[in-house]
């Protein structure tokens, strides 16, 4: 199955939670914000929110800026 991850197609074997997706991507959940199908998720919802086929996920973090 495919999802759209940060604007690009991304293949997953099966639906998985945001926590598992972040772990798969080796991303520290404490340092990012996640938007799932245009809804911004509170961090405590990462475990119970499941990503399904066709979903849109945005993962953002802080970078240098002025």
């Amino acid at each position: 199955m495919f999802i759209t991850l940060n604007g690009e197609p991304y293949e997953l074997d099966e639906p998985m939670s945001i926590v598992d997706l972040l772990a798969k991507l080796a991303i520290d959940p404490r340092r990012v914000a996640v938007e799932h199908n245009l809804t911004i998720l509170k961090r405590h919802l990462f475990g119970e929110t499941v990503v399904h086929e066709g979903d849109c996920v945005e993962i953002v973090n802080f970078v240098g800026g002025g």
């Binding site: 940060n6 604007g7 080796a26 993962i59 953002v60 973090n61 802080f62 240098g64 800026g65």
Partner: peptide
């Protein structure tokens, strides 16, 4: 100040900005 941008999915090797900000002393303004 910091900017909010998409995480680079294909290159996770890059070090995090926050590793270089003393967050005990610095207030972060996105």
């Amino acid at each position: 100040t910091v900017a909010v941008r998409r995480v680079n999915i294909s290159d996770r090797s890059r070090e995090s900005l926050l590793d270089y900000i003393d967050t005990d002393r610095m207030f972060i303004l996105p």
